[in-house]
Structures are given as C-alpha cells and as structure tokens.
C-alpha cells in the first residue's frame, strides 16, 4: 500500500488490541470473570511505566529508569493492584464483580486526576519514553514498534494457548461451567480466580507501555470506559472462549472503525457519521450474534475434538482460519 503511515498506525493498533483482547479472553472467556475494569488496570500499568521512565516533568517521583525496567515494574505493579482489587471483589457474584471492577476503574481515574504530585493531574504526561527503542526514533522506531506489538501478540497467543491446553485452563473453564462440580474436584475456586485476575493484570501492565508508545500521552481521560468496551466488543466479535478469535475480533473491529473513518462525508454529516459509528458496531454485533452466536470463531471449535491431538501453533492458526472461512461462507450464503 502506498500509504504506509496509515497501515503502520492501523496494524500497530490492531496488535495492541489483539493482545488485550486475548488477555480478557482468559479472564472472561475461560474464567467467566466479567471484568469491566480493564481501563483501570491499564491505567495503573500506564502510569507506573510513565512515571518511572519519564524525564523532563516535575513530579515527585521520576527516577528516569530505562524502559525495560519500566515495563517490568508496570507488570509487577498492575499485578499487585489486581491482587488488591481482586481480593474483595472476586468473592462477589458475577454481576457484582462486573460492577465492582467498573467502579474500581473509575476510582483509579479519579486518583490519577487528584494525585497531581505523582500523576501530573489532568495535564498528565507527553513526549513519553518509548519502550525498547534501542536508540531508534521516528519512522524507524514506529516500524520497530509494529514488530514489537506483533511479537507481543504472538507471545500472548502462545502463552494463552499453552494455558488453555493445560490443566489450569481446563480448571478455569470448569469453574466457569459449573462451580460446585469444580469444587468437588478439589479446585480452589477463590484462589484460581485471584491468580487469573492477577495474571491478566500482569499482562495488561506489560501491554500498556506499547499502547503508550503509539499514543504518546498519558492523561486520565485516555482511561475512560470506552477502552474497556472496545476490548469487550472485540472479544464478543471474535468469539468468547476461542483461542484465535480475540485476534480476529480486534483486527476486524479496528479495520471496521478505520473504514468508517475513511468514508468521505460533508462536514454537516460528519457528526452524524461518528454518532452512527457505535450504532453500526452494535448492529454488526447483533447480526453476528444472530447468525453466529459464538462469534467469528467458537470455543467449541477451539477445543472440541482437537484438544487431544498434539497440534502445532501453525495448525492452530489454520484450524481457526478454516473455521472462520466456513463461518464466513455460511454468512454469505444467507
């Protein structure tokens, strides 16, 4: 394509959202934990990374660490915060967990606004330290960033895939399907939930710096609930519970959004177009759920008969794709 900047941007964003959606899939898809606090944990990771690595801002903590230590610290901090949030809220039932995590996310945003000494308040930070830049700047770094985000996508995919095929992944899905039966097999549900929530938090903390490298600012309003709902939309679109579905969902959603953005309308219709955008995504979801309730790729197809066979990662991709193809075929035939 001639317009490389455009594709660089879109592909990077697709990568970040793919990774986030896969993480949500572990929690919500397999673990049945309906987390509406993604933006909150993402904010914790973002602020931790930024505060520890930023230079040139007058805040009370700014040690100016190198980016890789910042990433590790962001992972650790998000994990710790997930632990502290999870401890009380994971005891609650599913619906309450959803509300509590949502509320916590808002609390973190308010904290970012009010804790000005450390977060620089509503102004936030800009011209951030780029993660793993190896001295590259400008387009060179942005090309690297694209590579880095997709390396992360692959890492997260491999990790979640390994997890899903392990006894841990099965315990998660068992707990989601039938908690009393899972308990009767000695599964310690409260701990499993907490572990998973922390695990997801750590990964989100690790993904956050790469989103920031794309956005280049940190401000409280970046972490509004919009972010959470985008990830959820991608998950539902791609298929809750499937391994590769989250990637498909995120890619499809970002592409769809970009296509809508590219529609050339007169200024007077612009506002309408943007207002219609969430509506169009809603419609897309309704259509999908009508014709394919499990999303683009279903959980059954992901596990199902193949679960026993030792299949390769490549096999996993192709299996997912062929499932996607049949789904598409079925949709088109209607």
């Amino acid at each position: 394509m001639s317009n490389w900047s455009f594709w660089l941007n879109v592909l990077t964003l697709m990568g970040v959202y793919s990774a986030l959606t896969m993480v949500l899939n572990v929690e919500a898809g397999w673990g049945g934990m309906w987390d509406l606090g993604i933006a909150g944990l993402f904010a914790v990771g973002s602020y931790t990374y930024t505060i520890l690595t930023i230079t040139g801002f007058e805040v009370s903590i700014a040690p100016g660490w190198p980016s890789w230590t910042g990433i590790l610290a962001a992972m650790a901090m998000t994990g710790i915060v997930a632990f502290l949030v999870g401890l009380p809220s994971l005891r609650a039932r599913r619906e309450y967990f959803l509300i509590i995590t949502f509320a916590f996310a808002e609390v973190f945003r308010q904290l970012a606004i009010n804790w000005g000494d450390i977060t620089n308040g509503t102004v936030g930070f800009n011209t951030l330290t780029k993660p793993l830049s190896f001295g590259l700047t400008g387009d060179d770094y942005r090309n690297l960033l694209l590579g880095l985000t997709w390396v992360i996508v692959i890492l997260v995919f491999v990790l979640t895939r390994r997890l899903s095929r392990s006894s841990y992944g099965r315990a998660l899905r068992a707990m989601r399907d039938n908690e009393p039966a899972a308990v009767s097999l000695g599964i310690r549900v409260s701990r499993l939930r907490l572990q998973t929530f922390v695990f997801a938090g750590v990964l989100m903390g690790g993904i956050a710096p790469f989103y920031l490298a794309w956005l280049d600012i940190v401000q409280p309003h970046v972490f509004e609930s919009q972010l959470t709902f985008t990830v959820w939309t991608a998950l539902v679109l791609g298929g809750i519970g499937s391994r590769f579905g989250p990637v498909m969902g995120a890619v499809a959603l970002i592409l769809f959004t970009e296509l809508i953005e590219r529609i050339d309308v007169p200024l007077s219709l612009r506002q309408l177009l943007v207002a219609v955008h969430p509506l169009a995504i809603g419609l897309l979801l309704v259509l999908l759920l009508r014709f394919r309730p499990q999303g683009i790729i279903s959980e059954n197809k992901t596990f199902g008969a193949r679960s026993r066979a030792e299949i390769s990662i490549l096999g996993d991709f192709t299996a997912s794709f062929s499932d996607f193809k049949t789904a598409l075929g079925r949709l088109l035939r209607r």
């Binding site: 006894s167 841990y168 099965r170 315990a171 899905r173 068992a174 399907d177 039938n178 039966a181 899972a182 097999l185 000695g186 599964i187 310690r188 499993l192 519970g241 959980e299 059954n300 596990f303 199902g304 008969a305 679960s307 026993r308």
Partner: peptide, 18 residues
C-alpha cells in the same frame, strides 16, 4: 458436568494441579 467441554476434557479437570 462441565457442559461446554468434551468428555475427555471433563475427565482431565480432575486430579490435576491448577
């Protein structure tokens, strides 16, 4: 049981470390 999982997977849930 665990309705979304196959018989084989149901069996595997038990007795493993988590």
């Amino acid at each position: 049981g665990f309705p979304s999982m196959t018989v084989w997977e149901n069996m595997q849930v038990a007795g493993a470390s988590h």
